[in-house]
């Protein structure tokens, strides 16, 4: 952080930039919640980017067709949930490995995105959407950020303090023992996949609302950011560890890192490379800490 501040001659810590960092956190944090809670339970979803983009496109399409904003929002969220349910069916009923099942779903959702949009971007003129996307409290804190922080807080509490949350951890550690002790891993798995799908839809919509248009790339690239943030925040790919507090830290690290690169004028293309490398670094750290745990 300090390095960025020095290189950018202070631009990095100006309020305007901090606001930018906070604003760009929204999408990633929603994806991190969805992906992270799945990872704690030992699952994985590579289709969140695809689902979110598809849902944002549907919302934009419906708005353009004159559907009221709440109906468009509801339809998009339902579609997100349906995408998650589809993953859950593939994983639970057909026993696919989560990564391949969700990879297939990702490909299908990309197709639907293109079909809905005919490959073009759809502008969003709805005032409510634009308000959510770009208005700020006290002219500083974006509403969308409030939504995402609120979500992190709520999910953090759910994971740590409710039966459902406890079940997620227990299943991530030992699904078989948890089932024989009376939990229902299948039901939890469905809930988590559907929940992640809905959150992805919300993330996609918030981004589209901010950009005032929905395009076919959408939040596809943020999906890895979501996973990376979760892993950086201590949620192990092996399942059973980590939490939302760590995830928040992971998100902030990730976003400062990315935003810092923008501020010191690293071309945006390089940021794609960097985020891939960051994922690998996060994995290495995860691997090292897992090895340390095993050694103890």
């Amino acid at each position: 952080m300090i390095v960025y501040t020095v290189i950018s001659k202070g631009a990095f810590i100006r309020p305007r930039n901090i606001r930018n960092i906070l604003q760009s956190t929204t999408v990633v944090s929603l994806l991190t919640i969805g992906a992270g809670s799945l990872m704690i339970a030992g699952y994985l979803d590579l289709s969140l980017g695809g689902i979110g983009t598809m849902c944002a496109m549907l919302a934009a399409f419906l708005l353009r067709a004159g559907v009221p904003w709440y109906a468009a929002l509801a339809a998009a969220l339902i579609l997100g949930g349906a995408g998650g349910a589809f993953n859950a069916v593939l994983v639970n009923e057909l026993n696919f490995q989560p990564f391949i099942a969700t990879l297939a779903t990702a490909s299908i959702t990309q197709g639907f995105t293109s079909i809905i949009s005919q490959g073009k971007q759809i502008d969003i003129a709805n005032p409510v959407f634009n308000f959510i996307g770009s208005e700020r409290v006290l002219d500083f804190i974006p509403y969308s950020l409030i939504i995402s922080l609120f979500a992190l807080l709520i999910y953090g509490v759910i994971l740590k303090n409710t039966k459902f949350g406890r079940s997620v951890y227990l299943i991530g550690n030992n699904a078989q023992a948890a089932r024989l002790a009376g939990l229902r891993p299948k039901r939890i798995s469905y809930t988590l996949f559907i929940n992640a799908g809905c959150l992805a839809a919300l993330a996609g919509i918030l981004l589209a609302a901010r950009l005032k248009s929905s395009n076919t790339v959408g939040i596809t690239n943020s999906q890895f950011a979501g996973m990376t943030a979760a892993i950086l925040g201590g949620i192990s790919l092996g399942g059973g560890t980590g939490g939302m507090g760590g995830a928040l830290a992971g998100i902030l690290i990730l976003n400062c890192f990315n935003n810092g690169m923008t501020v010191i004028d690293v071309p945006p293309y390089w940021q794609v490379v960097a985020s891939g490398i960051l994922l690998l670094i996060a994995l290495t750290a995860d691997f090292l800490s897992a090895r340390k745990r095993a050694a103890n």
Binding site: K163, R166, N173, Q176, A177, A181, L183
Partner: peptide, 19 residues
């Protein structure tokens, strides 16, 4: 493998069915 969630505490393990 089937009885306990090994890396959780005694407390977490005994409370599973009565959560």
């Amino acid at each position: 493998e089937q009885g306990l969630v090994l890396y959780h505490s005694i407390r977490d393990n005994v409370s599973i069915p009565v959560l």
